[in-house]
Design a protein around this nucleic acid. Structure first.
Lengths: 186, 186
DNA sequence: TAGTCCATGTAAGATGTTACATGATTCA
DNA sequence: TGAATCATGTAACATCTTACATGGACTA
C-alpha cells in the first residue's frame, strides 16, 4: 500500500508561499487573485479551512499579529515538520501519472525548487520530467494516427492541441536544463 | 444571480461520450483509461454515482442490455433534455475565467463541437477563445517583467512555461480557424 | 454616514478519492 | 479450479463550492 499525501495541492501551494514569507490567510487570498497563481481559488471557504488543517497537522504555526497592527490578523509560518513535508513532496520522483493527470502540481513543485530544495534538485527534476514527457507523447501520436479517420475535425484538433501542449512543455524542459548547465546564469 | 451548471466537467464528458454512442459505465471507464481522455478518472466511485445523477436529472436514460448479453450491463443514451443541456453548456460564451481556470473544460467543449453543435459553432468558439487568450497573455508577460528580478530561477522558468503554454494554445486557435476557413477540408 | 476594503470564519451541499464488496464469466 | 476480467455498486472520508455572517477601519 502506497502512502499518500495527506495534503492537497492547494495545501502545498500554501506551504510554499508561507515558507517564502510569513503570510496571513488574507495575504494568500490576495496572492492567488492577483498573480499567475490565479488558477488556485481565492475563496475563503477553501483557504481558511486548509490553513486550519495545516495547523492541526503541525505543518504551520499561526499567531495573531503583534501590537502594531490594528486589525486581528493571524500570521502563519512553517514549522520544521512543515518544511520537511514540503521538501518530501517537492522532491518525489516524477511519475508518468503526474505528467498525465497532474501537470499543474508538477509545475508548482518546480516553481519552488530553487528556494527550498538542495542545489541539484532542479536539474534532476527537469531530467526526469523530460523523460516522462518524451515517453508519453508517442502514445498520443499513436492514438491520433490510428483514430484520425473516424474522428471529427474538432476532435482531431483538440487532440492535436494536447499534443502540442506536451511538446511545448518538452521543449521547455530542454531549455530549462540548459540554463542550469550554463552555471554562470544568475 | 448567475445560474450555474448543475453538472460537473466529468458529467459533461460522460454526456458527450454517451451521445457519440450508447455506452455502459464500464465502457466509459475503459474509454477514460485507454485514450487521451485519461485525464479523467476511471474510478468506479466517480463514474457510477455521476451516471446516477445524470439519470436522476433526466439527462440520460439507462436500460439493461437486451437478451443477447449474458452479464447485466446497463446501457445509457441521452434524452432530449440531455442533448439540449449539453449543447447549452458547449456553446456558452468563452469567458476569461475559463481561459485562466478551466482550459480543460474549454477543450472538452470544443472536442465535441463538430458532432453536436451547429455548423458555425466551432469557428465562432475558436475566435472568442483566441480573443480571450490574446487578452490574457500580456498580463502574464507584464507580471514576469516587473517581478523577474526578485523571482528565483525556477520560479521564473515555471512562469515562462505557463506563458509558452498559452502562446502555443493561441497559435493553435489560429491554425484551427484557418482549417475551418479552407472549406474544402473534410 | 454610507460604502468599500480588511480579515476571518462557518454552514450546506456537491463531487471526488480510496477502499471494499459482490457476483458472473472466461481462460489457463 | 483458481485467477483474471467483466460489471456495478457502496461507504467513509476529504476537499472544494457557493453563500452567508461578522465586525473593525478607512474614505468620500
Amino acid at each position: 500500500m502506497v502512502k499518500r499525501d495527506q495534503t492537497s495541492t492547494l495545501g502545498f501551494a500554501l506551504l510554499g508561499l508561507i515558507w517564502q514569507a510569513r503570510r496571513s490567510g488574507y495575504d494568500l487570498r490576495k496572492f492567488f487573485s492577483s498573480t499567475p497563481m490565479i488558477s488556485f481559488s481565492d475563496s475563503p471557504g477553501a483557504i481558511y479551512p486548509a490553513l486550519h488543517r495545516l495547523e492541526q497537522s503541525g505543518l504551520i504555526r499561526g499567531q495573531l499579529a503583534e501590537g502594531g497592527e490594528l486589525r486581528r490578523r493571524k500570521i502563519f509560518e512553517l514549522t520544521a515538520r512543515g518544511r520537511a513535508e514540503f521538501r518530501r513532496w517537492q522532491t518525489q520522483p516524477v511519475m508518468q501519472k503526474d505528467v498525465v493527470q497532474n501537470l499543474d502540481s508538477l509545475m508548482l513543485r518546480f516553481a519552488f525548487m530553487d528556494q527550498f530544495a538542495d542545489k541539484g534538485a532542479a536539474p534532476r527534476f527537469l531530467k526526469s520530467f523530460q523523460k516522462e514527457l518524451a515517453a508519453y507523447i508517442p502514445n498520443l501520436r499513436k492514438y491520433l494516427k490510428s483514430n484520425r479517420n473516424h474522428m471529427s475535425r474538432s476532435g482531431r484538433l483538440a487532440l492535436e492541441s494536447g499534443i502540442q501542449a506536451y511538446e511545448t512543455q518538452l521543449r521547455w524542459t530542454k531549455r530549462a536544463i540548459a540554463t542550469y548547465q550554463a552555471k554562470g546564469e544568475r
